[in-house]
Design a binder for these strands. Structure first.
Length: 536
RNA sequence: GCCCUGGUAGCUCAGCUGGAUAGAGCGACUCCCUCCUAAGGAGUAGGCCGCAGGUUCGAAUCCUGCCCAGGGCACCA
């Protein structure tokens, strides 16, 4: 079942055929809400894109398309105009709006979902913060992004697993153990150790910490911190399907790591030099070769990560790694490693998150785990709440650094976009409650629609396109923009169109419209992991 | 030096797989509560889209060079 916009697109493509052009060429054409009222309801560049296939001039072809479309739409279109270099502007009839609303209402909270052309098994790995300290506010950006992306991909019709790679092996963990021991004994923190206050807390909560072996302390400490991270994320509404322990890669006879290294050796892409085993990643575009096994016989972090990715690859079709900006150097080598394993590097997608700065009264705070003066995600949630934290982390593209304005995020007024959207949702609920009388199906005819009603319906209709673009571009921030627009246009409608007390026919229609808007606001917020309360 | 990401309104940022007069939020300034939540609403001002070339009927968007900012260039993880 095509959504109203998809139907329009398909009629437009057919019209291209009617007019003697190539309907296939219409695939790349745009069809979007008109930028200005004079441009009608929807504008399309289809004539400019397809005129060539009919050897016609864009403006002439647009006229032909308009005529063909008018026949096809049979009363759903009022008129069309050809403008500028060949834009086709459509002025649709109330009938189109009523039918569209009926379809959207029928689809309910599934409207806009399942549009993926090729359903795929995704495995999204994100956060994966070292379990050597509490999750920072910056980690909150990764968590919100990875989680929202996963929700979006699922809604779009894909299968998604969320995974957290726990770095519970290696030197960082050893340093944690030494730091705990030093704290327990009241000694100086070793160089490169962890100096945060939480280490003192750990030392205090582990019995006999002063006497115990650092390795043991490390294991216990990592366990505690991992649980804390999980609790924080859960509070933040982020749940993982799997917490993958790096340690398990190193365990057992013929461990996953050994298997992966063996596979790489067999592939002929490794070599030995100065006692170390190297992977010739330069063959696949990396700027230098990488060490797998150090000359002291210990595998590198990279080797473990290769093994981990090999494992992930065997469990899914497409991998997404959400990484920090300081890890971008990783992209080349991991892709190369995928290639040496015989996999298709395009199955691995590495998304780089830029940094977040918390801003309060113009002050920027940096977040470093080593120095111990960072703001934790728990602190941030305490300050602004889960909804605002998630929204503000998500509203910007992942590849731009972001300043999170704590003063604004804290506000519970219309100046705060999260609140504004939630408020629109609550208003919907309030009106529906006040109107009494139940919902009835949208009738195909009735009084002339107000322009605010038409604008709102058009906004609702465009949701599947928004979801598709957001999912394909890995851009949850587009959902924030869409939600804000929806809320604004709902609010305009609320201002212009009285519902309670309107003539019965009108009230029924408007109630259906409000109910549909409410459903969609909730759906959009749901994709962001933000709540949609009925009352504020 | 090489690589990645940015450079758009006073601020924070959308728009970037080319389209009409470049958008939003904040901030600034006007105005509006006999009316379904004023926890609200209406409006105004504000822009050589970093710079210079190129491609195109058309460039904020694509290409090249340069400048600026942040980040990265480990037998650390």
């Amino acid at each position: 079942m095509l959504d109203p916009i998809a139907q329009l697109r398909s009629e437009l493509a057919a019209a291209v055929g009617d007019a003697g052009g190539d309907p296939q060429a219409a695939r790349s054409a745009t069809l979007e809400p008109a930028a200005r009222p004079e441009f009608g309801d929807f504008s399309s560049n289809i004539a400019m894109v397809t005129a060539g296939s009919a050897s016609a001039k864009p403006r002439d072809f647009a006229e032909l398309l308009g005529d063909a479309l008018t026949k096809r739409l049979d009363g759903r279109i009022e008129r069309f105009e050809v403008a500028g270099p060949g834009f086709l502007n459509l002025f649709l009839s109330d009938r189109w709006y009523r039918e569209s609303l009926a379809e959207i209402a029928t689809a309910g909270d599934r409207f806009g979902s399942g549009g993926a052309e090729q359903p795929t098994r995704f495995l999204v790995e994100f956060v994966s913060a070292n379990p050597t300290g509490p999750l920072t506010a910056a980690g909150g950006r990764h968590a919100a992004y990875g989680d929202a992306l996963a929700r979006l991909l699922e809604f779009h019709g894909h299968e998604v697993r969320r995974e957290f790679y726990v770095n519970d092996a290696g030197t960082q963990v050893q340093r944690l153990g030494l730091s705990i021991q030093a704290r327990a004994r009241g000694e100086e923190i070793p160089e490169d150790g962890y100096s945060g206050d939480y280490v003192v807390g750990l030392a205090g909560s582990i019995p006999n910490a002063a006497e115990r072996d650092p390795a043991e302390l490390a294991t216990v400490g990592v366990g505690i911190l991992r649980d804390q991270i999980e609790a924080t994320l859960s509070r933040y509404r982020v749940e993982f399907d799997h917490w993958f322990s790096e340690l398990t890669l190193h365990q057992g006879e013929n461990s996953p790591l050994e298997k992966a290294i063996g596979q790489l050796r067999d592939s002929g892409h490794t070599f030995e030099d100065e006692g170390a085993l190297w992977l010739r990643t330069t063959e696949f575009g990396d700027d230098k070769d990488r060490v797998l096994i150090r000359s002291d016989g210990e595998p590198t972090y990279f080797a473990g990560d290769v093994a981990y990715h090999a494992d992930k690859l065997s469990r899914s079709d497409h991998l997404i790694d959400v990484l920090g900006a300081d890890h971008h150097g990783y992209v080349g080598r991991m892709k190369a490693a995928m290639a040496t394993l015989g996999g298709d590097p395009s199955r691995l997608e590495m998304l780089i998150m830029q940094f977040v700065h918390l801003v309060e009264g113009g002050d920027r705070s940096q977040m470093s785990k080593r120095r111990g003066d960072f703001v934790t995600l728990d602190d941030l949630l305490e300050m602004v709440g889960v909804d605002a934290a998630r929204w503000f982390m998500l509203q910007r593209s992942h590849d731009t650094t972001v300043d999170l304005d704590l003063d604004l995020a804290r506000q519970r007024t219309a100046e705060n976009p999260v609140f504004y959207v939630q408020y629109a949702h609550a208003r919907c609920f309030s009106v529906i409650t006040k109107a009494e009388g139940g919902l009835v199906p949208v009738s195909a005819s009735g009084p002339e629609l107000h322009s605010s009603e038409r604008t709102l319906i058009r906004r609702l209709a465009v949701f599947p396109q928004e979801v598709e673009e957001a999912a394909e571009r890995r851009a949850p921030h587009r959902i924030c923009s869409a939600a804000l627009l929806l809320a604004q246009e709902f609010t305009a409608f609320y201002r212009d169109c009285r519902v309670v007390g309107a003539p019965p026919e009108e009230q029924a229609f408007r109630l259906a419209l409000i109910d549909t808007a409410k459903t969609q606001i909730a759906a959009a917020l749901g994709l962001l992991g933000v709540e949609a309360p009925d009352e504020l």
